[in-house]
Design a protein around this nucleic acid. Structure first.
Lengths: 211, 211
DNA sequence: GTGTTGTTGGAGCGACCGCTCCAGAATGAG
DNA sequence: CTCATTCTGGAGCGGTCGCTCCAACAACAC
């Protein structure tokens, strides 16, 4: 129970050919792009078929139903989001790295003209209350995100960059929350100002713990 | 242009009877509750009809289409959200008021068992990119929210509670972003910890500006 | 080659969606 | 009372939704 893989008797596939793997990947990528652009509910299975260039039977061959597909989308977007924050995210152990990470996030949203929020957060807001299994995946996704933040801050404290009374757990969570809220407001207002302000505020708080 | 009322030729009603006003209100309230629980897209017009106890023709008599109804929901929820934060929100001019406000928000989410995020923020995440008019309403809603935060912090600075280099605009925006992000993570993780941590972080930053 | 399993195409079903339409009942103005 | 306007009930239409089914093709194991 509470396995990270799909639950009981997923109509998914046991073994996948190289070709099948490619088809499956194309479906997930197409679905991810559409969900990012229009949300889960507004993304129809038929839209995914068209975008991925597959037939209905192919889609339902690899994913038993839409819910399963959406869980695959969550997994895919989690990986993509973390990758988009590299290399800074995995070594957030100096104030300079923290600032570069902040700048990268802001630049990314600016390049998107502030359209679209967080690929994971948006899904969370839409289906966290309605799909328990997806919610578990989202919790895991956020945890994968928070972990490197926590680890970077911990390293900073160990190296004496942060005072002993700085709490890496608290600060990492505050950072993630500021990021999510900043993204939402940036998406709504179509300005990167909220994202910048939210991140800068928490970073300033962290700087207050500089040793 | 950019009026706050509905735009060109809204099929809405010119004059409303007392009875009509009541019916309209019932529809908006039912729709608001359903949207809060299940989101915009998952809320069917038929669901609203059932919940409000009205027929299809009634609903379309008061609201030309679903989009118009959703804009009314945004307006209604904006009022409701602000009301739920009173009396603190309108007088956030001491640290004590700030803490009471924080406690009220946390208690509210706890009483909901962390189900459902921000009534406005959730809608924003879902349709900000797809409905330009709704997005404008949401921007206005957030502004109505941010204004008292800004005004409270400004008062604190004027009274000498905050140093001159404290920027009420920045801090108010950071507070709102932390709140939104905290609510999203709290909704996803089903714990009030993220909300508490996010708000406490920004409040701690503000306290750093205490004169 | 043969059999098994993975892969693909495409028609189509039942349910639900937002919305329309028309006729009748209630209401307010004169 | 008269009449225009507002309000209500309910059937139903065209479209879309998630999904099923069946038959054929391709790839791999032996």
């Amino acid at each position: 129970m509470t396995t990270t893989t799909s639950s009981v008797h997923a109509p998914a596939v046991r073994r996948l050919t190289a070709k099948g793997e490619a088809t499956r990947a194309r479906i997930v990528e197409a679905a991810s792009a559409l969900v990012f652009a229009h949300g889960v509910t507004r993304t129809g299975v038929e839209d995914v078929q068209r975008e991925a260039g597959v037939s209905a039977s192919q889609l339902y061959h690899y994913f038993g139903d839409k819910q399963t597909l959406m869980r695959a989308v969550i997994a895919h977007q989690t990986t993509a989001v973390l990758a988009a924050q590299q290399p800074e995210l995995d070594a957030l152990d100096t104030f300079e790295a923290l600032e570069r990470w902040r700048d990268r996030l802001v630049a990314l949203q600016r390049s998107r003209h502030c359209v679209g929020g967080c690929p994971i957060g948006s899904i969370a807001a839409e289906i966290a209350d309605d799909d328990p299994e997806a919610r578990a995946d989202l919790v895991a996704g956020f945890e994968q995100w928070e972990a490197p933040l926590r680890s970077g801050l911990t390293t900073m404290r160990e190296r004496g960059l942060l005072a002993d009374d700085a709490d890496p757990d608290r600060l990492a969570l505050a950072l993630l929350a500021a990021l999510q809220g900043g993204l939402l407001l940036t998406q709504t207002r179509r300005t990167t100002v909220p994202l910048e302000t939210a991140l800068d505020a928490v970073i300033e708080l962290i700087r207050g713990y500089a040793a």
